[in-house]
Design a protein around this nucleic acid. Structure first.
Length: 191
DNA sequence: GTGAAGATTAACT
DNA sequence: GTTAATCTTCACA
């Protein structure tokens, strides 16, 4: 079942842990790919030193974050990789959730072709790799997550009891001072 | 127009 | 654990 807009209109720290175990679907021109969300990080807008909006403010790149929840925010990092975020909370509140890793469900041959590897567990185990495997580029920035191209759905086969949840500090934001210590990274580990 | 820095990854030692 | 690759984005002139 597809996730509705209202799901995304809440606080980032509420939405982020609830995304774990849901299925991310990308209906691309090359074919459909799906994966279970295994790891996310919450970015809490203006008061979060690690968030783009707290450094750069409202710019062309970050404008989508000021819209209401349920839109994709895709940016390029180090000139090499894309990262996928989901905009959450109400209009004018720039909060996002970064999707860091997935467990592939459907379209695995297509993922392998895009990533040029045969190891399934290495297809989506990082933000940049996940975007390569799913075919996500900045062309998808601003896409409605409640539409037909890119969306989330509940996963009827997902067994919550097969995993345990962890909450840890975020990764790769050493420049963010105190904010790098906030435990806003959420992940699922198989037991 | 110019310059600095980065929400990462893969390949090293 | 450390480091190079590589280019978009933003700040300033």
């Amino acid at each position: 079942m597809k996730i509705q807009r209202s799901f995304f209109l809440r606080d980032t720290l509420t939405v982020a842990p609830e995304l774990l175990g849901l299925t991310l679907v990308h209906n691309s021109p090359d074919g459909i790919t799906k994966g279970t969300i295994m790891e996310v990080e919450a970015y809490k807008g203006l008061e979060d030193a690690a968030a783009h909006v707290s450094r750069a403010g409202r710019t062309q790149r970050t404008a989508i974050q000021f819209e209401e929840g349920g839109y994709a925010y895709v940016y390029m990092i180090y000139g090499l990789y894309y990262c996928l975020n989901i905009v959450v909370n109400k209009k004018e509140i720039p909060e996002t959730v970064l999707i860091r890793s997935l467990e592939p469900l459907e379209g695995i041959p297509l993922m392998r072709k895009r990533r040029k590897t045969n190891q399934i567990q290495k297809l989506c185990d990082g933000p940049g790799k996940m975007c390569q495997a799913m075919g996500i580029t900045k062309a998808l920035s601003g896409t409605d997550i409640c539409g037909e191209i890119l969306y989330l759905e509940t996963n009827p086969y997902f067994q919550a009891s097969s995993y345990h949840r962890e909450q840890t500090p975020r990764i790769g934001i050493a420049y963010a001072g105190e904010a790098q210590k906030y435990p806003w990274r959420f992940l699922l580990k198989s037991s």
